[in-house]
Structure formats: C-alpha cells, structure tokens
Nucleic acid binder design. Sequence first.
DNA 1: CTGAAAGCGCTTACAG
DNA 2: CTGAAAGCGCTTACAG
Lengths: 346, 346
Amino acid sequence: MKPVTLKQIAEQLNISVATVSKALKDYPDVSIKTKTKVKDLAKSLNYKPNSFAVHLRTKESKTIGLIVPEIVHHFFSNIIKGIVNEAEKKGYLVIILQSNESYELEKKQIDLLLSQRVDGILISLANNTSDYEHLNQVIALNKPLVMFDKIAKMVSCSKVIIDDRKAAYDATQHLIDIGCKRIAHFRGALLPLNSIDRFLGYRKALLDNNLPFDSSLVYMSEFGDMSFEAGQISAKKLIEDHKDVDGIFVNTDLVAIGALTELKRLGVMVPEDIKIIGFSNWFMSSVISPSLTTIDQPGYLMGETAFNQLYKEIIAIKNKEETAPQTITLETKLIKRESTEIFSKN
Amino acid sequence: MKPVTLKQIAEQLNISVATVSKALKDYPDVSIKTKTKVKDLAKSLNYKPNSFAVHLRTKESKTIGLIVPEIVHHFFSNIIKGIVNEAEKKGYLVIILQSNESYELEKKQIDLLLSQRVDGILISLANNTSDYEHLNQVIALNKPLVMFDKIAKMVSCSKVIIDDRKAAYDATQHLIDIGCKRIAHFRGALLPLNSIDRFLGYRKALLDNNLPFDSSLVYMSEFGDMSFEAGQISAKKLIEDHKDVDGIFVNTDLVAIGALTELKRLGVMVPEDIKIIGFSNWFMSSVISPSLTTIDQPGYLMGETAFNQLYKEIIAIKNKEETAPQTITLETKLIKRESTEIFSKN
DNA sequence: CTGAAAGCGCTTACAG
DNA sequence: CTGAAAGCGCTTACAG
C-alpha cells in the first residue's frame, strides 16, 4: 500500500491538486463545502503529507540535528530529553548522533546533518575537538548553531553553559569551609573548556584562602577518561602518594563514586579521613553510601534552553531578522550530603 | 549563503545537470575527465546533495524513527546508543521520540514518523498501550516495524526481547536456592507484557518449589510507577504487613535500590534479614552498598539487534522480497552480588 | 560519452 | 472560489 497523495484525493473529488492543497491548509479562499469534502476524504484515506515534497518547496525541514559525545550518561540523557520534549512542542523532530568523543566522527556528523538540511544544529563538543572549521561552516551557511555544556569560546554562535569556574570554586570553598587543608583535584581531559575551568576554579579557591596550590595533588586519568575505574585508579595513587590529603574535589560524579569505592576498599573513611565532593548530581550520587556531596547541573533545563535558543534563531532567520549570538549561563547548586558531613570531633 | 546545487556546478562547467549527477555517483558511462572536473568543483564548493530532493525521487529517506517510553533510563539509553551506532554504520539517521509512557503521544508520534516518511520504525511500547491500530497502520503501509523490550504479542511484526518469564524464574529460584521461604515480589504496572511475564515467572518458581503463592506478597506501586520512591513505599508497607518475609524479587533495579535504602533506614539488614534481587543490571546497582544481585539485560545488544532486523526488512522490501516476522530472544544473566550473599550462619 | 525530458509530491503567485 | 503552471533539486530511462 503506497502512501496517499494530493493527486489521488484530487482525482477522487474531481478537483485540482492546488485546491486540495489549499483546502487542507485552510486557505481562506476555498469554499467551506470544498474544504469539508477534502478534509473528510483525506482523513478517511489517512492522508499524510510527504514531508520531502513539502520541505523541498518550503525550504524548512522542521528537523534539527543533535550531536552529543555520549548518550549513556545521566547528564546528557537529561539534556536529550529536554531537547526532544521541547522540540516536539514546537513541531520539530530531532535527529540524534553520538560523536563518541571523536572529533573525526563529529565532523562527519555535521556534514550528514547539513546534507539532511536540518533547520539547525545543537552540539556538545567531543573532548579532542580543537579545530572549528566544521562548526564555522555551519555558521557560514547561515544555519543556526547552538553549543551547550562543552563549548568552544572561539566559535561565534549561541551557547548554553554553566559557570564551571564558579561552580568548582564553590565546591572547593565548601571543602575549605568544613576544615580541609590539603585538597586534591581529580580533573578531566586537558582540552575541554569545562575541565579547564573546573581546574581553574579549584585553584583560585585555594589561593583566595591562602592555601598553597600543589600541582602534584592534581590527578588526570589516562586519556582524561571519566569512568568509575578512572576514579578508582586516581584514588589509589593519591593514597599512595599523599598521606595528608583531607579532601578531594572530583571533576564528575562517576569518577567521584569510583574514588569513594576505592577509598572504602582501602579502609580510608569518608568523610572522617577524607571528604569528597563531585560534580553533576547524578541520581546515583544520592543513593550510594556515603551519599555524595556534589554540584547540581541542570541537564533537562539546559536541553530546553538550548532548543529554545535554536528555535528563536530559526524563526529569526525565517523572518530575515538579525540575531546576535547569546551566551546563557544556568545556575548550579551545591548539594551537601554525607561525603562532606562535619563531625563534632572536628 | 545558500547551499550549492547540481545546477550551479553544471553551469560553471558548462555541462548538463544530468551529467553532473551521474559523475558524482560514479556512473560508468561518464568520462574520467568529466568526473574529475565535477568532483573537484563539488568538493571545493562544499556541495552536499539536498536530501529532500534525493528522497523525493528515490523514495528512500535513509532515516528511521525510534520511539521509547523514557530517554533518561539506563537500559533505554543503552538501547538508543546501540541503535544510533549501528544505524550510522549503515548510513541511516535516527529520529528519536519519547512517548513518556503515554499511548496518546505514542500514536501521534507514529503519525509524525509516517509523515516524515522514515524507512522504518523501532518502538518500545508505552505502559498503557493496549490498542494497536497505530502499529497495524504502519504494517499496512508495508513499512518495516520492529518492537523491542516492551512489545505486544498481537502485532504481527519482528520483535527483539528477552525471556522475561524465564529470567524472573531464575531470579526467584536463586532466592529459593539460598534458603528464602517467604518471597515477596514488587511488580510493575498491570499492562506491559514484561511486567506480567516477570510476575508469572516469579509465581511459577514458587509453585515448582512447593512454596505457596501468596498474592498479599505481591506489591504494585500506584500507577505501576517504577521509581526509587516506589521502592521505598513498597518496602515500608511490606515490613509493616509481613514480618516473616526473607526475600524480595523486584521488577527493576531502580525500585530495588529504593527498597534497599528504605530497609536500611528501617534497620532491616540486607542480606542477613531479607535478601533482594533486582532486574536490569543498572550500573548503579554494582556500586551501592550492599551491591545488588540482579538480572543482566543486554541493552546495547538489544539496540543493535533491533536495528539490524529493521535494516534487513528495509532491504528486503526494497528488493521486493517477502519477509516473515522474526522474534529474537536475547540471553539474560544472573549477576550475584552482596544483596543475596549467603552467610555461614545460614 | 552527454544531455533533454519526465517526474517525485508538494506550494503558491497568478489568472480567470 | 477554482485551477493551470512553475518550480523546489534531484535521478534515471532514453535518445543521440
């Protein structure tokens, strides 16, 4: 069974394709009688416009592209959900691609989406993306592009982020406030701006509090891998290298949970011996024991916001209005839990 | 800047659009010289075929639709990843939609995808989907449809599933094997086949072992909600109602973790007083304390398998071959952890 | 080896 | 109020 076309409806009713098209779209210059006839038949035949034909004419695809480094990830899957839900409300479909933290793949995927003629692109960059030609190409085509979470400052497009430096500062300050003097940092990979910023926030908090910054207390796992195992490995090394550490600020919750688990295994008490704070507020962090103090990052809201910014720009371009790139910074929040609880003995 | 078209390339080279099209697609009847000229210019102009025009002609969209009840979900996000990765390998893009466990939305989304002229649809049903008209409509259009995880037996299409009944049986049997005599079950909603099957597997294991089946030991949270909180609530009720329970088989890990947390709060020891087994093997289950015994469900593989089945059917239809619906059952595995560990005192 | 022509299924400015 | 016509950007069977 082939999909029904306007032509078939027109033939059955003995009117023109043009009239059928206009009737279905409620043009004011079609008689009510004709409209009713057309709509009834369309409904009973289960007519659905062929989107390719529509889009070829209208130059609108009502589809956007989304590239994330990783789908199986509490933060990103919340972002995806926010984007998909918001897009649907506005009548847009979302094509989703996963760059797998690979710049090469990311580049190919941008080409794919461009070829697909999506109306706009949302992207969170792969860790090793340091060349932005593929992104500038999108901008050159006057196609809306919005980056979120993992962004590149150099690219002239709208961005939705959190203030990673401030959030990391807050996290470190919290450790200091509850008495930590020797605070380690498990950082992310070298390139991504947010891992740099979190590191800088950590360092600034130390310096502002007259605590020495000691680079040997900064750990990065191989390839900047942000896994549970990475947290275990760094924690093990830390305990071997530094007996005097009393706090750790970890770049992301999953790594923090790995660290927590390893410390437990080694007989190091959290929070009594070492206090830990993570970053992201994964659901998991609230249910492990001890529960993990962390920074809440609004994933769903970030997705919604990113889509809405993209939508604004799509509409603006349609109306031939100018838009200047916006940078929207969302609030983060310190979530205090057991891993940094203060004990009376302190 | 508008996207480059074949016509522009043709004009610049003073040849016909037809020749340009064939040159780019390496038709054997175009001279090497022309091919080289065309390809070079296409590359330098950054030509990308307009997918709408291509698809309008070829009737292939190289796009598939994916509907899941929930994106933020360890199991489903693994499935999504498997689908997206496998699809990309075969040159397909994935449009993702979330039904939010709503039949109404699911129905609308099928229409959207049909209108989008996707080449095939992958779906995991919403809990309250009991009418299959929207799915049969897809089949009537001779459009490939593959259901995974949450399926409807009545619909005549390919399915990728696990053997929920057997897996639940195995889980319950494990509790029995380690000495449990009064085993409760926290079940899922009434309608979805997999929650029914897990219940039936649980009951059969009891009966096969000559343990009485007691329906007051089967708990369902309000609306069949499968959250952490649902697990807490059911656990609380269970402890109030039944002092003698020594094991719980929970429909899904998240609920099991909620139960575990509540039991801890109430001072009930796991596994000493009550042993718990979950279902799904979420990552979280391995890191909580006590770690959760569970049934491993192969999410990524299920996504890959579902896409590949869909792909086969897309190709078959293209080649006008007949295909019979397949049902593919993937293996599950019992993962023993601390929540069912046997103690010597036993 | 190259190109003219038809056509995929729509939309819309225009004529009547 | 209705319809003929052009055209979106491709592909492909056919002619030369």
